[in-house]
């Protein structure tokens, strides 16, 4: 299918789903508005929410609160995770020093860090940044490590015969060739960070989309609840798409890989 066709089918399918939603939640329809709001109600609330604050902040305020914490945790995860992952792949000894702890941390869901975080830092922004950092760190490290492992050894041999020293081999061959995998890791890390943040906001927050959803649920305000969920989904899609764009920008050589040879 061409990309135009895909876009057309996608738009059509979205409209169809909204139509089904509208039909199910119509006045006197099978789903009561207390249980799930109609698209019209959601849109009304979205517009209202845009200008009038809800629990302390406007919609933009909540979105920015969520996004800034996600970005902070994700960037910190990258700053620590990428060099660590690359170093672990490059110096096997370091890997065997760090790996045991890392393997132990890996299966612990990031949310399980919340109780400890509450004790350490309380429920402020720093606490959420820390939990998001943990969620992003694991994919950052793992993908950075595998990115280095997946670089063809032959390229290193080629570099050596062309006179590259170890430092040049690492910076110019290994890391550059690893960029596509690194970016894939960045995308996974961002996805993890986002879902973890929203969950963290359900548990301990004073602003953000997860906090909005939790409050709306307590108030039985399904309109706002659905608005919040919709935005969480849409922003997640947007972040992922942005990372796809970044991959095309920073690894332009990947695009034509399939018609090589």
């Amino acid at each position: 299918m061409t990309s135009n066709k895909v876009a057309f089918v996608g738009a059509g399918a979205t409209l169809l789903w909204v139509a089904i939603w509208a039909w199910l939640t119509r006045e006197g329809g099978p789903v009561s508005e207390l249980f799930f709001p109609s698209p019209g109600d959601v849109l009304d609330r979205l517009i209202m929410f845009w200008s009038r604050p809800y629990i302390g902040s406007t919609l933009m305020g909540h979105i920015l609160s969520s996004l800034s914490i996600v970005l902070a945790g994700w960037v910190l995860g990258g700053i620590v995770g990428v060099p660590l992952g690359i170093a672990m792949a490059w110096w096997t000894r370091l890997k065997w020093i760090v790996f045991p702890i890392f393997q132990l941390i890996r299966p612990v869901p990031p949310l399980a860090w919340i109780p400890l975080t509450l004790l350490w830092i309380g429920i402020g922004d720093a606490a959420r940044i820390f939990v998001v950092f943990i969620a992003a760190l694991v994919p950052w490290v793992m993908n950075s490590m595998h990115a280095v492992y997946s670089v063809d050894k032959l390229l290193i041999d080629a570099g050596r015969t062309l006179g590259a020293n170890d430092r040049k081999i690492l910076t110019r061959i290994v890391i550059r060739s690893a960029i596509p995998t690194l970016l894939a890791g960045a995308r996974i890390a961002l996805g993890n960070a986002w879902t973890t943040l929203v969950a963290a906001e359900l548990l301990a927050a004073t602003a953000g989309l997860g906090y909005v959803a939790l409050n709306a649920s307590r108030m039985l305000d399904t309109d706002v609840l659905v608005v919040a969920m919709l935005l969480i989904g849409l922003l997640g899609v947007m972040l992922s798409a942005l990372m796809g764009l970044a991959a095309r920008m920073f690894a332009p050589w990947v695009k034509n890989d399939r018609n090589g040879g």
Partner: peptide
């Protein structure tokens, strides 16, 4: 080192570099 230059069966070109950058690689090193 470059006095014994190698051409590999699987080309071993650096994927992230253009043709010009690949050819200049050794000169830069």
């Amino acid at each position: 080192g470059p006095q014994r230059s190698v051409v590999f069966q699987k080309f071993a070109l650096f994927p992230s570099e253009t043709v010009a950058q690949n050819i200049k690689f050794g000169l830069q090193m």
